[in-house]
Design a binder for these strands. Structure first.
Length: 721
DNA sequence: CTAGGGTTAG
């Protein structure tokens, strides 16, 4: 060390680049004092700046502050600018930047320059207070630096981070000749506020687009969930031979993850390797996320294990991936490993572990972590953590304790907490609590379609058709419409999209034949008998409903046609899988010897050999079945209580038992003359963003004279929460 | 001697 110092005595500052320990830093500092270097304000400034900006050595910044405060000569603007700069990005406190700014102001020989404001505005963007940001802007104006192009683009970025698109717009309009950087900042600003089409307009009108502009546009599409366009733009980018970077691939992977497009994601991974794009922590984390959300946890964990450097995002991503794929125990293991490595978990890490505990029903462990969060890490629980705890207790059937958790929340419970309770009420058939939960949710957000559907399902579980009707009435009165079910499947790189009852796929004929074959085989296996006979015996209007296939059934059937034997069928669905489809898929996995992975709104279902990875944990508990059968109730009564509407419909229709239920139910159904048809896919609020390979779905089964039964189609029994 | 825009987990 000393030797190397001597040899580089002419410029000891170059040593800083390879310095990481505090001891080495002390040695260099001592050497600079001895040699008299630090008496020169210029060199002192350089030393301080280098220290402040040295990456991956967080202890250098506080050290540089100390040197500056204790040096005999007063600091220069250059040094202070660089300290502001160092504090303009996390993990350092951006508020500190203002101390250095005021140091410039209070020093009679110094005044802030265009660099000062560029850095100060950048620091302001990381604050939560838009007022401080505006004050930085005002100061720049007052000192005559607001016209500087660097300051201007930082200002757009800052207002964008405050979600103030009007401020961005005003600023941008005032610039006569905006350059690429400002335009790119505006793309980011419009994308952040959801005006992606306006962003695209800016992008389209740019005379010159560099790689970062492309990245910003692709990221914008990914951000708002327009994944197909993100991927299209990515291929356009390659066509223009713009250089692809880490940031590009992160957005591409995010798009693949949202789509659940494993093939595309794999391709992107291979592309990264082929182009030798450096696998940074951020990129690695995106890969983990992509593989997890495409149902390929094993690959996700491979990437995770291979990463030499990880951060909280990486760990949290791995944990949440395991949790959503049903691997709760592994999720907990990863958390324990993280603790062992003495990495500091954050709020989101705890959301992930708690979900892991929830999915495998480890209530006590979850409670332990909830307490640990506060006691060991000093993290105040967010509403989301309470939501996890409600879910944890709720899924375990401990509804009262779940309610107590809601009541213990320090602030007003959010709809997610009540939603978790409502979900538990559906599983454990608790009408009173369910009604309470729904009313609370509706106080907060009136348009939550999933909440209405869940409560309606609870009523349906009890055969309470009046309740079902009243929910539908309420939805109609409030103008709430249920999101249409939609499933997608990727076949040789193309994403095929199916809506409920959708006949518009070019291969629909073949799909229908396949569905017939499936039903025939499942019948032999002891399953299909129900549905088939139902189709025979039910009334005309019901028959029409029974023929409406859920979107995942269509997608799975297509997958069986289009995918080679042995290839896993992967489905991504926008809503939750219904009970009937869940059973149907379990049977297929056994009868056809096919692995099927369904990603629904909340989690993955890995079907293999007739079993699902979710262990049916979200379903109605059936333990009481035998007891009920043996005496107290008839099977129809049992079914009324235990089965969801359309499963019960098969039984009630008299195929199995003719116990007079049918007539009674019929008349009740006739009563509910609510002409609320399921929303047409074509005018869905937000059309799901999947690759439409076959045009707009047909809606011929939704013609105006929809029978009143329509709103109780099986699809309605699927929830969106 | 310093600079602006794009990227990760619920």
């Amino acid at each position: 060390m000393i030797n190397s110092l001597r040899t580089t005595a002419s410029n000891p500052l170059t040593l800083l680049e390879s310095t990481s320990t505090l001891k080495e830093l002390h040695q260099i500092h001592a050497q600079l004092i001895v040699s008299g270097h630090l008496r020169h304000p210029r060199l002192l400034a350089k030393f301080v700046s280098l220290l402040a900006l040295s990456q991956n050595t967080p202890h250098h910044l506080p050290y540089s502050r100390k040197i500056l405060n204790h040096s005999p000569s007063s600091p220069t603007t250059f040094a202070l600018n660089n300290l502001i700069r160092a504090h303009s990005k996390p993990p350092f406190n951006p508020l500190q930047a203002f101390n250095f700014y005021s140091q410039i102001l209070h020093s009679p020989s110094l005044s802030p320059d265009n660099f000062t404001f560029t850095f100060l505005v950048r620091a302001s963007a990381h604050l939560t207070s838009a007022a401080i940001g505006a004050a930085s802007h005002a100061a720049a104006l007052k000192r005559g630096h607001a016209d500087d192009p660097h300051v201007q683009s930082s200002l757009i970025h800052m207002y964008s981070s405050f979600r103030s698109s009007t401020a961005c717009h005003r600023l941008f309009e005032g610039i006569q000749d905006p350059d690429v950087v400002m335009q790119t900042a505006m793309i980011g600003a419009y994308a952040a506020s959801g005006d992606i089409d306006v962003a695209r307009k800016v992008f389209g009108e740019m005379p010159h687009r560099d790689a970062i502009a492309w990245n910003a546009m692709i990221a914008g599409y990914s951000h708002v969930g327009r994944c197909r366009e993100a991927l299209e733009l990515f291929s356009a980018m390659q066509g223009e031979s713009v250089s692809v970077s880490e940031a590009t691939m992160v957005s591409v992977l995010t798009a693949c993850a949202q789509l659940g497009a494993l093939d595309q994601g794999r391709w992107a991974h291979a592309y990264i390797q082929k182009k030798r794009i450096q696998l940074t922590v951020t990129l690695g984390t995106s890969l983990i996320d992509m593989y997890s959300k495409c149902g390929s946890v094993d690959r996700a964990m491979e990437v995770f294990k291979a990463m030499p450097e990880k951060n909280v995002y990486t760990w949290s991503s791995a944990m949440s991936g395991l949790a959503m794929n049903g691997a709760g125990k592994q999720c907990i293991e990863v958390f324990e490993l993280m603790e062992k490595e003495e990495l500091e978990p954050n709020e989101i890490t705890f959301v992930s572990v708690l979900r892991g505990c929830s999915i495998v029903g480890l209530v006590d462990r979850g409670l332990e972590y909830f307490d640990l969060m506060k006691s060991k890490y000093g993290i105040e629980p967010w509403p989301e953590h309470y939501g996890c705890m409600v879910d944890l207790y709720g899924r375990a059937g401990r509804l009262e304790e779940a309610l107590q958790f809601i009541k213990s929340m320090p602030s007003k419970p959010h709809s997610g907490a009540w939603g978790a309770l409502l979900n538990a009420c559906k599983i454990y058939r608790n009408i009173e609590l369910g009604e309470l939960a729904l009313s609370k949710i509706l106080e907060i957000e009136t348009m939550n379609d999933g909440a209405y559907v869940l409560l309606s399902n609870i009523y349906a579980d009890f055969g309470n058709w009046k309740g079902v009707c009243s929910v539908r009435e309420l939805m109609k009165a409030k103008g709430v419409r249920k999101e249409p079910g939609c499933s997608v499947i990727e076949v040789s790189g193309l994403v095929h999209e199916f809506f409920v009852g959708d006949k518009s796929h070019p291969m629909y004929q073949e799909i229908e034949v396949m569905l017939g074959e499936i039903n025939w085989k499942l019948k032999l296996a002891g399953y299909a008998a129900k549905t088939n006979e139902v189709l025979f015996d039910i009334e005309e209007e019901e028959k029409e409903n029974a023929l409406i296939w859920h979107s995942e059934k269509l997608a799975i059937a297509y997958g069986l046609i289009a995918l080679k034997e042995g290839v896993t069928v992967r489905i991504v669905k926008n809503l939750r899988v219904c009970w009937d489809c869940h059973d149907w898929t379990k049977f297929i996995s056994k009868v056809f010897g096919r692995e099927i992975i369904v990603r629904d709104r909340n989690r993955f279902h890995h079907f293999k050999d007739g079993v699902c990875s979710c262990k049916d944990y979200w379903r109605v508990r059936l333990e009481g079945f035998n007891e009920l059968l043996l005496g107290k109730f008839s099977i129809v009564q049992w079914a009324r209580v235990n089965l969801s509407y359309h499963s019960r419909k098969y039984i009630n229709s008299g195929v199995y038992l003719k116990l007079g239920q049918k007539k009674e139910r019929k008349s009740e159904i006739k009563d509910r003359s609510i002409p609320l048809a399921p929303p047409r896919p074509s005018d869905a609020r937000v059309p799901p963003d999947h690759h439409l390979t076959h045009g707009v779905p047909s809606d011929h089964h939704l013609k105006p004279g929809v029978p009143p039964d329509h709103h109780l189609t099986p699809e309605f029994c699927q929830t969106t929460t």
